[in-house]
């Protein structure tokens, strides 16, 4: 175990801040604004002090956001008409 990691861990502990691992576990709710105000503040303070988590959250946010950039194709009208006729045809009265 590296001394550096122990030091950082101790520093976050003394400041009452979550660890990097906890920041990751809070990431979903952090993005959605679903954390309680106290935890929200603590995560923000961790981020101010930790460049690596800043990068992680930036990447995580972009990853979460690009899903909505995917194209939204639709069926063409001919297909829908054929589908309608198909369903009518299958109908047993």
């Amino acid at each position: 175990m590296s001394v550096k990691h122990k030091m950082i861990r101790m520093m976050f502990g003394l400041m009452g801040l979550p660890t990097c691992e906890e920041v990751e576990q809070f990431a979903y709710d952090f993005l959605e604004g679903q954390l309680d105000p106290y935890t929200m503040k603590a995560v923000e303070r961790h981020l101010k002090a930790c460049k690596n988590c800043q990068r992680f959250i930036t990447a995580y946010r972009k990853t979460a956001a690009f899903g909505k950039t995917f194209k939204k194709p639709s069926l063409d009208l001919e297909f829908k008409q054929r589908l309608f006729e198909f369903l009518i045809h299958q109908r047993v009265s």
Binding site: H5, K6, I8, T19, C20
Partner: peptide, 12 residues
């Protein structure tokens, strides 16, 4: 390691 990131992330 000990709750602290082991790897460095790239800058998105």
């Amino acid at each position: 390691e000990n709750g602290i990131h082991l790897q460095e992330f790239s800058d998105w």
